[in-house]
Nucleic acid binder design. Structure first.
Length: 490
RNA sequence: CGGGGCGUAGCACAGCCUGGCAGUGCGCACGGUUUGGGACCGUGAGGUCGCAAGUUCGAAUCUUGCCGCCCCGACCA
């Protein structure tokens, strides 16, 4: 096995796969399209979960859990929803195996056929709204603000670790409100929560926007999204928040009595982010030496590598390092001391770079004599030797600095790779080169579809915070009210 | 589902064309020397050559069938 990763500039996709595997985030599983999330990868996911869960709770949501299996009849109830998901559903038809009478092993017992097939949830709107029927009777029962952390299955034809897997982990929020206005506010609020998380924790800048009707969630009235740009110039949808109108309430016959004593349908939202964000995290920041993790999500923020020849030297180093580690821990910094004797320092340096640990401290006998310590930054691969006195404060500040630096680097990259384009030739050329392409669109599904067929570019979103400025559609020349974001996407 | 490729040690692969002892590198185990940017030497363990049938004195190698995986396309609310 080669020690070096493939280079991003030579083969981005091989670089991504190798980085994910070699950094110990995940590996392929024996089941096609599924993955094993390894401890280091899961530790990052747990930090994401923790931060998001706190944000959900702070906005008044509670966690609950609904079943993995969805009766097929539930999925059928909302027509568009059913149609949208039908092609990628795993279906349970039997509930028992038996010994193969003609040979070895087990076969599906034909006697044990389910009367109604069960779908393994691709999302949970239907099971949840079936429950909401019983939960919601009066305006006093609203709003219902529920989130669940769960796994879902979507039978994708082509999969890639984290970015698109047949089974993935996510959270799905499902809320019900008395008024349309309140539901729209919730949809927008949660989009804001996602944007806040992705920018301030993952250090990935995003564009908030609306999906075009063609890209909308099946069964939604409006889909909001956050879109991020990866280092290879392709876009990645990092999260979605849907205003579902009264579609599911009507399909599941959920009604409540409002303050005016009228029977009426509640308004719904749903919103989710998934382990796909792990892929975004890797592709947004990492380099040819491996992962680059933002300090706020790094399982290990600081690693200490003692450099020594004799066990006595290690003891002396530990004596000096131990109080620093304790101070850092009391300041909430996660620190690992790697005094494992099986590997040499050079190996460890490379290993922690691969794993994206933001700060590495090196300390040897020379430092003990000089009262110094070597501090190395993962994000820009620089290192300097500093006095050991007061190093804790420096480290705490540096972690914040690194968080900001990573964000700013990604932001600069996005700005340098966002292009305003007005002609079809320029458009085709720029899409080929990559990046976000801001262009006028006439708002029609035909134009959108033709552009997609000719260039493989899709409308990533119609940005929320951009000015209306009339223009001509880059493809059809028809009138357009504002520019939208085009890109090739994951 | 169409086109292409690949199944040999934990991993990456050579050997196959031209049939004749199952190989290399990494990793792993043990011993020693090493330790400020992926150390080195020595010894050793590890195999249903995807599965099945056929040809042959003899098959990883040739033939046929099957299975699995990967890449490209179709698909991805």
């Amino acid at each position: 096995m080669s020690k070096k990763l493939p280079k991003r500039s030579e083969d981005y996709s091989a670089w991504y796969n190798e980085t994910v595997k070699r950094a110990g985030l995940a590996e392929n599983s024996p089941v096609r399209g599924c993955m094993v999330i390894k401890p280091y990868g899961f530790a990052i996911w747990e930090k994401m979960q923790r931060a998001l869960d706190d944000m959900f709770k702070a906005t008044g949501h509670e966690n609950a859990y609904f079943p993995l299996f969805v009766p097929k009849s539930f999925l059928e109830k909302e027509e568009e929803h059913a149609e949208g998901f039908a092609k990628e559903c795993a279906v349970v038809t039997h509930y028992r195996l038996k010994a193969d009478p003609d040979g070895q092993g087990l076969i599906v017992d034909p006697e044990a056929k389910l009367e109604e097939e069960l779908i393994i949830r691709p999302t949970s709107e239907t099971v949840i709204w079936n429950s909401y029927k019983n939960w919601i009777q009066s305006w006093r029962d609203l709003p219902v603000l529920i989130n669940q952390w769960a796994n879902v299955v979507r039978w994708e034809m082509r999969t890639r670790l984290f970015l698109r897997t047949a089974e993935f982990l996510w959270q799905e929020g499902h809320t019900a409100h008395a008024t349309e206005q309140e539901a729209i506010e919730e949809t927008e609020q949660m989009l804001g929560v996602y944007a806040d998380f992705v920018e301030n924790w993952m250090a990935v800048p995003v564009i908030q926007g609306l999906k075009s009707p063609a890209e909308r969630f099946a069964g939604a009235v409006e889909t909001y999204c956050i879109e991020a740009l990866m280092q290879d110039g392709k876009a990645l949808q990092a999260g979605t928040s849907h205003f579902l109108g009264q579609n599911f309430a009507k399909s599941f016959d959920v009604q409540f009595v409002n303050r005016e004593n009228e029977l009426t349908y509640p308004w719904a939202t749903s919103w989710g982010v998934s382990t796909r964000m792990m892929g975004a995290l890797v592709m947004a920041h990492s380099d040819d030496s491996g992962l680059v993790l933002p300090p706020k999500l790094a399982p290990i923020q600081v690693v200490v590598v003692p450099i020594y020849r004799q066990p006595e030297d290690l003891a002396k180093i530990n004596e000096k390092v131990q109080p620093i580690v304790e101070n850092l821990r009391s300041l909430g910094v996660s620190v690992k001391i790697d005094d494992d004797d099986k590997y040499k320092p050079g190996y460890k340096f490379a290993e922690y770079e691969l794993k994206g640990v933001p700060i590495r401290l090196g300390i040897g006998m020379r430092d003990l004599e000089n009262g110094t310590i070597e501090i190395a930054r993962r994000d820009n691969l620089t290192k300097e030797t500093l006095p050991i006195e007061g190093i804790e404060d420096k480290i705490v500040k540096l972690l914040d600095e690194i968080q900001d630096a990573i964000y700013n680097k990604a932001l600069t990259f996005r700005e340098d790779n966002t292009f305003v384009v007005d002609t079809w030739d320029e458009f085709k050329d720029q899409i080929e080169k990559g990046g976000f392409v801001m262009a006028h669109w006439d708002g029609s599904a035909e134009t959108e579809d033709k552009i997609k067929k000719e260039t493989k570019a899709t409308i990533r979103c119609i940005p929320l915070n951009s000015m209306e400025m009339a223009g001509e559609c880059v493809y059809s020349g028809n009138e357009s009210a504002k520019r939208v974001v085009f890109a090739r996407a994951y």
